[in-house]
Design a protein around this nucleic acid. Structure first.
Lengths: 128, 128
DNA sequence: CCCGTAGTTCCGAACCTACGAACTATCGAC
DNA sequence: GTCGATAGTTCGTAGGTTCGGAACTACGGG
């Protein structure tokens, strides 16, 4: 099988990171990985079971996060172990990731909006 | 003419901000506005003259930044004055904006890549 | 070898984005 | 007032991106 692509630390771009994290599903996933102490496999997420998102979409989201350099994926037998690359990135862009995560948690704490609902409201505001 | 839409401070979302700033042209514009002490009208930007981007595209970029709650636009006669809403946002998401701007400057400082070239390279990496 | 599980790839439909052309609004000159 | 220039917006469309179902690959267990 094709080996997974991971960008080198100094080829990750701010735009790439911001793009990857500008999706509610992906920030949620990334926040989960970044916060958890141990590696996580793809499908063991609250969000995944809450929203029963299709596998293909999920796979894409993980790919985007990998391509942005935010996470590292490692095949372990049949399943995939994902770990955050926070430390590396923090060295290149100090404080970036942590302040995004902090803001994300602040938001999801203060609002009772679900992950699914959030996306629509974002698009609705465009039409004004 | 239709009055400009600006979201209230507490209806701005992290995703919206990240999306708006995940475009090289828009971060550049926003960084310029955020750093400059006085209001700026639409077309007085280095980037605009460097890349001679069409007006319609530029207008869209400004709209995205406004809709994300990052800037405030004010019609002053025939031209438009844009000011950053950093202070307001910083109150809601402390440190978010400043760390993004810092990262952006760090990147554009260390790399000699032009704004125009950056976008392509981001897309090229997807195909691996 | 066969089956179940975990992910990936393919592809069509829906959605988003860039930019030229046509439009609106305001100011200044005549 | 009307003509023209300037600064932005809106519209339409071609090209690109994303979502998700169906079909596929990889590995492990029985």
């Amino acid at each position: 099988m094709k080996p997974l692509f991971h960008p080198s630390v100094d080829s990750v771009s701010v735009e790439g990171i911001l793009h990857a994290l500008s999706d509610p599903m992906r920030v949620a996933i990334f926040a989960h990985i970044a916060c958890s102490p141990s590696a996580q496999m793809c499908s063991n997420f609250l969000i995944v079971h809450e929203t029963n998102i299709p596998k293909s979409t999920l796979s894409q989201h993980f790919k985007v996060l990998r391509d942005a350099g935010l996470i590292r994926g490692e095949r372990r037998g049949v399943e995939m172990h994902n770990t955050s690359r926070c430390a590396e990135i923090d060295q290149r862009f100090p404080g970036l990731i942590s302040s995004i995560i902090k803001a994300h948690q602040l938001q999801s704490g203060s609002r009772s909006t679900s992950v699914a609902a959030r996306k629509k409201s974002a698009k609705a505001s465009v039409r004004n």
